[in-house]
Structures are given as C-alpha cells and as structure tokens.
C-alpha cells in the first residue's frame, strides 16, 4: 500500500482519467442510445432496421475488438483522429487517445443504452402514446413529452447496470496507451512487485467507490422521479 500512498497524486490522476472516460462516453452513449431507441420504435421502417443493425453489430462485438478496430485499423485506413488534439477545453488539450477510447466505449455502450431505453419505452402503456396522438402531438412530440419522460423512470435500474458496466469497461483503454486506473495499477505493481496485494486492494477500492457513487446517484434519481400509476 505504501507505493500507492507515496504516489497518491498519480493514483488520483489515474482515477481522474477513468472518471473522465466514464463521464464523456456515458453522456455520449446516453444521447446516442436514446436516439437509436427512438429510431427503433419509430414509424420509419428503414430507420428501425438501421438502428436494429447497429445494435446487433455493436452489442455482439467484444469491446476489445472495437478498441482494436479504432486504435489500430482506423489509423491504417487514414482515420487517426489527430485533429481533435487541436481542440482545447478548459486549458486541456483532448488527446487522440482519449477521443478514440471514448469513441470505442460510446459505440459499444450506446447499443446497450438503446436496448435498455427500448425496454423502458415498452414499459409505458400504449394508451399513453395513443392519448398523445389523440390530442394532435406529432411522433417526435409524443416521444419527448410523453413517452421518454415516463420511460426514463422505468429505465433507471437497467440503465444503472449499463453505466456501471461502462465504468468498469473503461479499463480496456489501459491496453491502448491511456494511463487510467488499470494501466496505472499495472505500472505500480511493476515498480513495486513486493506490494502487489496492497496495490490491488487500493485500486479495487477506487473502483468500488466509483461504482458506488454511480449506484447511489441512480438510487437518488429513482426516488426523486418515481411516478405513481
């Protein structure tokens, strides 16, 4: 444990990167996944199929392969995403590594978000959509004003699981040059082979804290938005 305590700033930085990956790809997959879910339940057949194909493709592919594709295959094809390094946010430059990792995590996670969201949409009684249509709401309006707000409530428990999986999946980025928690743990154990157990414990506790914060916030949100039927 000494190795962690004496290098605590590195430990925090590593989890900072883990949380950064989680937050950015979490928000992006919630947005993309919700759009996909709307397309899947929407009235346009070609969009239904496109969204279903997306889900099939990315949900059935191991996350590691998506990482390999984006980090190794895409640069060969001429897409290295170096252009994002010119973007500066709050004094920090976005690294192409960070962008690629978020892209891979988002592509993968949004397929799961889509399906969780769709289960939520299906949990909203059909009569709600009919009532929305009956007062003249368009499909988009009845989705955003009536269905999704109610679906979101039903969807919090499964969505929490998806988000927790995402938080842990960020560790795959360790293999692709990002010094997030898992990569940093490996570096620590390499340098302090005698303290492996302590280092493992310290990082395990770090992950547990991150995940507990996610599930606690989801519990609070769930309690706040509970709807009576």
């Amino acid at each position: 444990m000494d190795a962690v305590i004496s290098n605590f700033d590195e430990y925090l930085k590593a989890f900072g990167l883990t949380i950064g990956l989680f937050v950015v790809s979490g928000i992006a997959s919630l947005v993309l996944g919700t759009i996909l879910a709307v397309l899947r339940v929407g009235p346009v057949s070609i969009l239904n199929k496109a969204a279903a194909l997306y889900v099939t493709l990315f949900r059935n592919t191991p996350l590691l392969m998506i990482f390999v594709f984006i980090f190794i295959a895409m640069p060969v094809l001429g897409y290295n995403f170096k252009v994002v390094e010119n973007i500066e946010i709050a004094g920090y430059n976005v690294s192409a590594f960070f962008f690629r990792a978020c892209l891979a995590l988002t592509l993968y996670t949004s397929a799961f978000v889509c399906e969780a969201m769709r289960s939520g949409v299906n949990a909203v009684p059909l009569g709600q959509a009919e009532a929305g249509r009956a007062i003249g709401l368009t499909f988009a309006q009845s989705m955003t004003l009536v269905i999704l707000p109610q679906a979101a409530r039903a969807v919090i428990p499964p969505m929490t699981s998806v988000m927790i999986a995402l938080a842990k999946n960020t560790s795959v980025a360790a293999a692709f040059g990002l010094a997030e928690a898992t990569a940093t743990m490996r570096a620590f154990t390499n340098n302090n082979a005698d303290q492996r157990i302590g280092i493992f414990l310290a990082f395990a506790i770090g992950y547990i804290i991150v995940v507990e914060v996610i599930s606690l916030s989801s519990y609070l949100v769930e309690r706040k938005v509970r709807v009576a039927r």
Partner: peptide
Amino acid sequence: EVGMVFQSFNLFAH
C-alpha cells in the same frame, strides 16, 4: 380537431 376519450382514461401519468 378530433377529441378522444378512452376506456382506460390514459391521462399522462407523469
């Protein structure tokens, strides 16, 4: 232009 009242009310629950 057409008002509709359903058997199961279908008020927006939220």
